[in-house]
Computed example of a mutant assay.
Amino acid sequence: MLADLVSTRSHVAAGNSSARDEIERCIAAAEGPTCAHVFRQTSFDQARAAAAVPGVERLPLAGLAVSVKDLFDIQGMTTAAGSTVLREAPPAPADSPAV
């Protein structure tokens, strides 16, 4: 994995890496033992699909992964705010403007 997001983005933009490769590296890290209890919900399939779109390398955030604290609504995901009480709440109908 590269040192930072700027380096990663530069490598993708220069063709030295691809959005697919970078997303796969991020997913592997997220699924690794050091992150075993970090992510409550993931969108790996959506990230893979977005990274596979033709021409995606030209977009400013191509290949960069992001994690969002579950205080913010993401359409189709439960916004539990880290609470076990809210973990079974219905999925958010739309993204928060902050996302």
Rank of each mutant, 00 (worst) to 15 (best):
C35N: 12
H37N: 14
R25L: 11
R25S: 09
T8R: 14
V85N: 00
L2K: 09
H37W: 05
P91R: 07
H11E: 11
G63T: 01
T34Q: 10
D95Y: 04
F39N: 06
G82L: 12
V56M: 07
L2Y: 12
P93E: 11
L64P: 02
A19Y: 03
A65L: 09
N16V: 00
G63F: 03
R25E: 04
A36G: 07
A49D: 08
P33Q: 14
R48L: 03
G76Q: 09
V85T: 12
A50D: 06
S7C: 05
S10L: 06
A92P: 07
S10G: 02
E57P: 03
S83K: 10
A19N: 07
A52Q: 01
T8G: 08
V53H: 01
T78C: 15
D73K: 11
N16D: 11
G15V: 03
T42M: 06
A65Y: 01
D70F: 10
H11S: 13
S17Q: 02
D21L: 03
R40F: 11
L5Q: 12
A50Y: 01
T79W: 02
Q75W: 05
S17P: 01
A89R: 14
F72R: 09
A14E: 09
T84Q: 15
P33T: 14
R25I: 03
S96G: 08
A13C: 01
L71Y: 13
P60F: 02
A14V: 04
N16T: 02
H11D: 06
P97H: 13
L59Q: 08
N16S: 09
R58P: 00
K69M: 10
V56R: 07
V38H: 06
I23N: 03
D95W: 05
T79L: 05
N16A: 08
F72D: 08
E57T: 03
G63N: 04
S83M: 14
I23R: 02
R87V: 12
Q41W: 12
A80T: 09
G55D: 02
R25D: 14
R40N: 06
M1Q: 07
L71I: 15
A94P: 06
F39K: 07
S10Q: 13
H37C: 10
G63I: 02
M77K: 13
D45V: 05
G63A: 01
A49R: 10
L86P: 05
R25P: 00
T42A: 10
I27W: 01
L59P: 00
G63P: 03
C26M: 10
R48V: 01
G15H: 07
R9V: 04
G15F: 09
A47L: 05
S67V: 08
V56G: 00
D70E: 13
E31K: 14
R48G: 01
D21S: 08
A28K: 12
C26K: 00
D95Q: 12
S96F: 04
A3Y: 00
L2C: 00
P93Y: 02
S7L: 10
T34D: 14
D45T: 07
L59N: 05
R20M: 03
P60R: 10
C26D: 09
A50E: 05
T79Q: 11
S83W: 07
R25W: 06
F39Q: 07
